[in-house]
Amino acid sequence: MGFKLLSKLLVYLTASIMAIASPLAFSVDSSGEYPTVSEIPVGEVRLYQIADGVWSHIATQSFDGAVYPSNGLIVRDGDELLLIDTAWGAKNTAALLAEIEKQIGLPVTRAVSTHFHDDRVGGVDVLRAAGVATYASPSTRRLAEVEGNEIPTHSLEGLSSSGDAVRFGPVELFYPGAAHSTDNLIVYVPSASVLYGGCAIYELSRTSAGNVADADLAEWPTSIERIQQHYPEAQFVIPGHGLPGGLDLLKHTTNVVKAHTNRSVVE
């Protein structure tokens, strides 16, 4: 069995187990497998329904001669939608809004960016022009300005110390501490036991640490421990890039980060 097929099978099995364990909360999309990078042309966006009122959005972007996937989250909030992270750029984010209108038909009224990198804030200006209120932590807003990236308009308070959590509509926002970046936030959907790890969490097929220019490698494993301790009931975990899975993604990420750190020390 090929690795790609095995990865998709694991996603399907995880979703099936969740649907059985929580039949009222989960209505997993039966329309197909989780979209992969090879299936999404740059400039297009796919939506994948995880649970009743919960979707991931998947886009792709060219970077350094390669094409990478990027995940975000959409959560229903009454007759409105909360968006977590842009679709990595203005063109993708405009396509995301169009796809949401086509498939869901509810307005996106608020959006949260989970850290300051372009795959999370690139497209904020498109959201703002569409009347979406954009939010991020003060740290993310400051770092985005320093980096020359787009800056969300509103500040999220109460997320300055490791372990801080605040309720934001249908989700809980959690600051686990520094990891992929010093400002990275985690998003949890309690009604569906869905954990969105953003770039602080890796997919299972990833074996290298990737972009760690703004990471705190020493603190990252401790931050992941905080996530595990705060959300032990999480059933569906979405990484910032690639295929979702279960809580095993947290341990896998820790292993990859520690291996990278150990290699760096040896070198």
Rank of each mutant, 00 (worst) to 15 (best):
F174P: 02
E33M: 10
S162I: 11
A98S: 14
I104P: 01
E203S: 06
A129G: 11
P69Q: 15
F168T: 02
E99D: 08
V194D: 01
W88T: 00
D77C: 04
V257M: 08
S191M: 10
A15E: 06
S70T: 06
P232I: 07
G65Q: 10
V108P: 09
V237E: 00
E33L: 09
A218W: 10
L83D: 02
D214V: 06
I227R: 01
G131Y: 05
T134Y: 00
I17D: 05
E203M: 03
S56R: 15
T93H: 05
L97A: 01
G240A: 05
L243N: 15
Q229G: 11
Y12H: 10
A94C: 05
E80Q: 13
I100H: 02
R120K: 03
V124E: 03
A111P: 04
S193A: 13
E44R: 13
V112W: 04
Q228A: 13
L217G: 03
E157T: 12
I58P: 00
V237G: 01
Y188Q: 00
Y175W: 05
A66H: 15
F26G: 14
V112Y: 03
H230V: 09
V67N: 15
P170R: 05
L13I: 15
S208E: 12
V11T: 10
S161A: 13
L217H: 04
A165W: 14
V28S: 12
N149T: 10
D183K: 01
E80M: 08
S191G: 12
E99L: 15
L82D: 01
I84H: 00
E219Q: 10
S193L: 14
A94H: 13
M1D: 00
G148S: 07
L243E: 15
S181N: 01
K102P: 06
S27N: 09
H260F: 08
A133D: 14
V11Q: 08
I84P: 00
A200T: 06
S162N: 11
G43D: 09
T60V: 15
R167K: 12
N255L: 10
T60Y: 09
T86G: 01
V146F: 14
L156E: 02
L13N: 08
P69C: 07
Y188I: 02
A59E: 08
R167V: 11
A213S: 12
D52W: 09
L83A: 04
D85H: 05
A19D: 15
V126E: 07
S264F: 10
F26T: 11
K102I: 13
L13P: 09
T36A: 14
P221E: 10
A178F: 06
K8E: 14
V266Q: 14
I238G: 01
L24N: 15
R141H: 08
E157K: 11
G123M: 03
G89K: 03
L9N: 15
A136D: 03
H241I: 00
A144D: 02
G163S: 07
V237I: 08
Q235N: 10
L204P: 05
D79K: 09
S208F: 09
A98Y: 10
D79F: 09
A218R: 12
A90F: 07
S7I: 09
A192T: 10
S137M: 12
P176S: 04
V166Y: 08
S161K: 14
V112K: 04
P170N: 15
L247F: 12
E172R: 02
P138V: 09
G177Q: 02
T140I: 05
A192L: 06
S70H: 04
T60F: 09
D119E: 04
D85Y: 02
D216P: 02
R226P: 04
L13A: 14
S205P: 08
S205N: 10
A213G: 10
G43S: 07
G197V: 03
D125R: 08
P41C: 06
V75G: 01
A178L: 05
T134H: 02
E99Y: 09
A111E: 13
A133P: 10
Y196L: 01
G122L: 05
A192P: 06
